[in-house]
Computed example of a mutant assay.
Amino acid sequence: MSATRDGHRLTPDAAPAWLRPLVDNTDGVPRAYRRRMPKDVLTAVTAANATAAVTGTRRDAAVLVLFSGPPDAGQGLPDDADLLVTVRASTLRHHAGQAAFPGGATDPGDEGPVHTALREAAEETGLDAERVHPLATLQRMFIPPSGFHVVPVLAYSPDPGPVAVVEESETAIVARVPVRAFVNPENRLMVYRDANSRRWAGPAFLLNQMLVWGFTGQVISAILDVAGWAVPWNTDDVRGLDEAMALVGQDAGYGESQQ
């Protein structure tokens, strides 16, 4: 067991065998994330990151990447493993209607990213943090449009208990999505926001109730690669956001600022 910088405990040994390839190779997630970004885009993001740090406009945040599934399953992804995902309310000022990991901005009283991620997840989904084993913190990632520097907190729970929308003005959907739904190549595509940002096209997932794209889609795609769960899929299926939104019945204002 090891301590994070915020005093919260990381318990990597609590990961079941099927999560070990991911937990043991978390350094590979940022690399896999960046591999999907064109060089000019990566250069622009790196420059924006440096500017935010120098000007003091950087905003810290954390998200909870919570996997659930059987503790005693062997190696290989179990059929009943799932990932906790939310959809933000369509009335919010930022990232309205977007699928996301539970999480948010760091509060002054937070003791670090693990604290932030667990607090935000409890506020958004009613999650009982006592049921959750934080396994690892991933490298901080920068999201240029919002200026957030986000730490994904990888976690596991054999049974997270009931989760649901707590505040409808903030969250529209809370769902434990089967990991195999993300793995399924029929659910995968590449999405760009508008005609002027086609070079920003990134991995996305088309599910029954949601389109998962932008930062969240990129992180999930990188996790699938690093964990060894990804299967070949059609990366030439590249669509504009409006077209992809229509497939899940969303309007054209959905998710304007996530990338």
Rank of each mutant, 00 (worst) to 15 (best):
Phe67Val: 07
Arg198Lys: 12
His94Ser: 14
Thr11Trp: 07
Gly147Thr: 13
Val87Lys: 12
Asp110His: 13
Ala201Gly: 00
Thr57Ala: 13
Met1Arg: 06
Tyr33Asn: 10
Gly28Glu: 03
Gly126Lys: 03
Arg131Gln: 09
Ala230Pro: 03
Asp13Val: 09
Asn196Pro: 00
Thr51Pro: 00
His115Ile: 02
Asp24Met: 04
Thr51Cys: 00
Pro102Met: 00
Leu92Ile: 14
Val226Phe: 06
Pro232Glu: 05
Thr116Gly: 07
His133Thr: 05
Pro70Thr: 00
Asp24Phe: 02
Leu64Glu: 03
Met37Thr: 14
Glu120Phe: 01
Arg140Cys: 10
Trp229Ser: 02
Thr171Met: 13
Gly104Lys: 12
His8Asp: 13
Thr86Asn: 14
Leu10Pro: 04
Ala164Pro: 00
Leu224Lys: 03
Ala53Trp: 11
Leu189His: 08
Tyr33Lys: 08
Phe205Lys: 07
Val87Tyr: 01
Val238Gln: 01
Val114Leu: 05
Gly249Cys: 00
Ala89Leu: 09
Ala105Arg: 15
Gln250Leu: 15
Ser2Gly: 08
Ala99Trp: 01
Ser169Trp: 12
Ala252Pro: 02
Val212Met: 09
Phe101Lys: 07
Ala246Ile: 01
Ala73Asn: 00
Asp27Met: 04
Leu19Thr: 02
Pro158Tyr: 04
Leu19Arg: 02
Ser68Cys: 12
Glu123Ala: 15
Phe142Cys: 01
Glu170Cys: 06
Asp79Val: 08
His8Glu: 13
Leu154His: 10
Arg9Gln: 12
Ala50Lys: 11
Thr57Trp: 08
Phe67Ala: 07
Asn187Lys: 12
Asp79Lys: 06
Tyr192Lys: 04
Ala175Met: 03
Leu77Thr: 04
Gln75Tyr: 07
Gly147Ser: 10
Ala3Ile: 06
Thr86Gln: 13
Phe67His: 15
Met141Val: 07
Val212Tyr: 03
Arg31Phe: 05
Ala32Cys: 07
Ala96Phe: 04
Glu124Cys: 04
Leu83Pro: 08
Gly253Arg: 15
Val85Met: 15
Asp60Arg: 14
Thr86Asp: 10
Val219Gly: 03
Glu123Lys: 12
Val226Asn: 09
Asp237Lys: 13
Pro152Cys: 02
Pro12Trp: 13
Pro203Glu: 11
Phe67Ser: 05
Leu19Tyr: 02
Ile223Thr: 10
Tyr192Leu: 05
Ala96Leu: 06
Pro71Glu: 05
Thr116Met: 07
Ala48Pro: 00
Ala47Gly: 00
Val166Lys: 12
Ala17Val: 09
Tyr192Pro: 06
Gly253Asn: 15
Arg239Ala: 01
Thr43Trp: 11
Asp24Tyr: 03
Asp40Met: 12
